[in-house]
Amino acid sequence: MAPMRPVDVAAQTEPSTPQSRETVFDIQGLKASYGSNVAVKGVDLEIYRNLVTAVIGPSGCGKSTFIRCLNRMNDEVPGFRQEGKILYHGIDLYGDGVDQIEVRRRIGMVFQRPNPFPKTIYDNVAWAPRILGLKKDLDERVEKALKGAALWDEVKDRLKKSALALSGGQQQRLCIARAIAIEPEVLLLDEPASALDPIATASIEELMHDLKTDYTLVIVTHNMQQAARVADRTAFFSLDVDESGQGAGVLVEYDETGKLFTAPSDKRTEDYVTGRFG
């Protein structure tokens, strides 16, 4: 009789979904525009801690604008205006008295093209800690950041060499190291692999997988497969054209990545992920 006792196999192989999700961003009715051009509107979504959240969609759907709202990078763009609320742990990012510098210190960003400073590898990583007054144990901080970005082994012997001598993929990982050197909580990645070759892309994707244990990641990508591979949850944005012919990005669907890519609930998502779009 002993071998017949049922075992709880379900508990062992259940995909690892966090039991209680902590909300990092709670976005309510976000509308972002440049002058009279509305880039995105009516966006409601919640981004959860220690997950990779991907934003996908066709060109012009406002996915880049959206992610740049999350650390107020759009403030630099003349004519930018934002309505609605972006609550970061319950605090409105665009509320009174919120300093964009403090915001960006907690919410780091990595861009489409690797953009290391024309400095040494070490100084690239140490730059932000220095200006933010985190000068104590700087060497360890740099090493930790480079290790976190899976770059340490490749550069530890040439920390004082120019960062521009690195390959594209290494430069992008250096930019990630630079961002995590000040220990942000969130890392925003705006098409981080679109300028990289497939091997470098794979290493960045692998890195994202590792990073989510410590950080909350939001990635914008035009590469659906990339979203499918790396993201826990995926938001699909699309371009919505109203009667007057004015287009604006809207959030169409937001769900578990597996669900979105196997059984999307919106026809527009289905058309996009199957390549029947437009």
């Binding site: 017949m4 049922p6 075992v7 196999v9 379900a10 192989t13 259940e14 995909p15 497969q225 499918a228 591979r229 990545t257 597996g258 890519f261 196997t262």
Partner: peptide, 24 residues
């Protein structure tokens, strides 16, 4: 006991579906 087998079967089926959709 067959229910346990069925549950595992379904889980593997779902896992393969997700793997195909996400990892090509």
């Amino acid at each position: 006991f067959d229910d346990d087998v069925d549950r595992l079967y379904l889980q593997i089926e779902l896992g393969i579906q997700t793997l195909l959709a996400r990892q090509t």
